[in-house]
């Protein structure tokens, strides 16, 4: 352990307004939620001498609120809380499944949805699910509030589009207009539990009565610097029937949307093959 506690300044705002104000005063402060990522770097001695904006006392950000058209997840809601919530379990099962794959119990009890997004890892476990549920990230900052669609929140590896002084206050999950015909989340990690993903898939499809695909939302994590919605594939499939031919064509299109790499956890080749397999199997209804 190489962190130096006495070199650190802790700022402990008690409300959203105070958090924004304090952050404006100390813009170099590191926002701290559950600490499951920040503390790893701190333990390695990489953050000595920094100020930390400890958000854990902002009680209003800890709540899950079910509202008319969706669910509002306070940014400090933990992965464990999400898994336990009955409405989320029923309406957003892919997100619940994703949260169950974040680390293990100890991490799920501490890691937060807002922290996960702010951290912007290419392998963020909740992102493919948030992408296909078309979540909105609610942000508060010195110039007030704004809503950022999930598709616009990430700027690159470990980078968000948050502006200086902005903090995530909530993630809004809109209820889908219609219940999806089929939905799957699948994480392929380095081992059976407590793993970093090599690839992650989330998919929702809505089939019309005539058998044509009314809509599809498909996303992969860990295949590019940020989570990738497969817009080209979705557009191609809309209005088509799912046949071997259309599915094969969709799988071909997928490679245009992703750019996996070789790294210490896997290879580009494996990530592509497996992701393609998952997409095809999902469209065929063969993956649970």
């Amino acid at each position: 352990m190489r962190g130096d506690a006495k070199s650190m300044t802790v700022l402990s705002p008690r409300s959203a307004a105070e958090a924004v104000k304090t952050y404006a005063k100390v813009p170099t402060a590191l926002p701290l939620a559950g600490g499951t990522d920040l503390m790893v770097g701190w333990n390695l001695g990489q953050l000595n001498g920094r100020a930390v904006l400890d958000l854990s006392r902002v009680a209003e950000w800890r709540r899950i609120k079910v509202v008319g058209d969706g669910v509002d997840l306070g940014s400090l809601v933990t992965h464990a809380q999400i898994q336990a919530h009955p409405v989320l379990r029923k309406r957003f099962p892919l997100l619940v499944a994703a949260c169950a794959t974040v680390g293990a119990a100890q991490i799920q009890n501490r890691g937060t949805i807002g922290g996960n997004i702010a951290n912007a890892s290419p392998a963020g476990d909740t992102f493919p699910a948030l992408a296909v549920y078309e979540a909105t990230v609610r942000v508060i900052g010195p110039n007030g509030r704004r809503a950022v669609p999930m598709s616009e929140i990430f700027a690159g590896v470990k980078k968000t589009t948050l502006k200086p002084g902005e903090l995530i206050e909530a993630v809004f999950l809109p209820f889908p207009d219609q219940t999806p015909t089929r939905g799957v989340f699948r994480k392929v990690g380095t081992r059976a539990a407590q793993a970093i993903s090599k690839t992650m898939f989330a998919g929702l499809i809505w089939t019309a009565k005539n058998g044509e695909l009314a809509d599809a939302r498909l996303a992969f994590g860990s295949l590019a610097p940020t989570v990738k919605r497969l817009y080209a594939v979705e557009g191609f499939l809309r209005g088509r029937r799912l046949t071997d031919v259309s599915i094969a064509a969709a799988a071909e299109l997928m490679t245009n949307d992703v750019s996996p790499i070789d790294d210490i956890r896997s290879t580009r080749e494996y990530r592509l093959i497996v992701s393609r397999n998952l997409l095809i199997a999902f469209l065929k209804g063969e993956v649970k």
Binding site: A104, T190, R191, A192, A193, Q194, A195
Partner: peptide
């Protein structure tokens, strides 16, 4: 994190 040994589920 990156040198993975078996967990109870492996």
């Amino acid at each position: 994190t990156n040198y993975v040994i078996p967990t109870s589920l492996d």
